[in-house]
Amino acid sequence: MVKGIENKSNDQRPFEPSPPFAIEAREVNIAYGARRAVLDVTLKVPEHTIVALIGPSGCGKSTLLRSMNRMNDFVNNATVTGEILFRGQNIYESGADPVSIRRQIGMVFQKPNPFPTSIRKNITWGPKINGYQGDYEELVETSLRRAALWDEVAGKLDESGLALSGGQQQRLCIARAIAMDPDVILMDEPCSALDPSSTLKIENLLLELKDRFTIIIVTHNMQQARRVSDYTAFMYQGELIEYGPTDEVFETPRQELTRDYVSGRFG
């Protein structure tokens, strides 16, 4: 279907992680109008792991990530073909409800984007509109604790989330995503707007969250991918060039393109 894909995947057998999978992309193509952003990507994400999507700017990694909870629905003339399976169901089949999918597949964005309201309401809003029946106070505390933010904000839950520092705001956004108790959390370069110490905090946090959630993280930062991820997928010009255990992708890449990229020769 797409020139160049066949010989790439033929010269070596693709990496096969072991099931169960949280997300499984099958021959996914994504285009914005006539411009094709993701080409024939097949990717299996095992449960309770962290998968890093790396690649140079414009390689389609964010587009792929956003297709996994149908956030691309809001982009005009974005078309997705192929299948993305979540719990074995194709989230693009007719009748699939994007709203309920997003309840189970949360997202953290590149720039911290708390709601312009109190810290508490930032956490409770999502559960509230989805009819959460439990104890909200408890939910706020657990979510903030899991996001390693509780100690810093415990006394000021009614203050605006916008008054926090950038790193704290991003952890608030993670807490907000956690509060929904999703299966998967998608992260789109969550540390790119943060300073190194906030970045470190969030990386440590991700390693802790792995027990409860599956995390797919897009990152520009190769050191970050190495530090936090179990598996790494390298994309280039819309194609998935290589996917495998992070150590292997960085130390013994199978593809020359991957080797050039992870050694910093381009990108």
């Binding site: 189970q104 984007n113 709601f115 907000r176």
Partner: peptide, 27 residues
Amino acid sequence: VPRSVKEAGYALGATKSEVATQVTIPS
């Protein structure tokens, strides 16, 4: 209203009208 704030709403499983009335208007 920044697109990112609306997206935050959608990413939490909010419908379009929930985002419009509870995120966009207050913002």
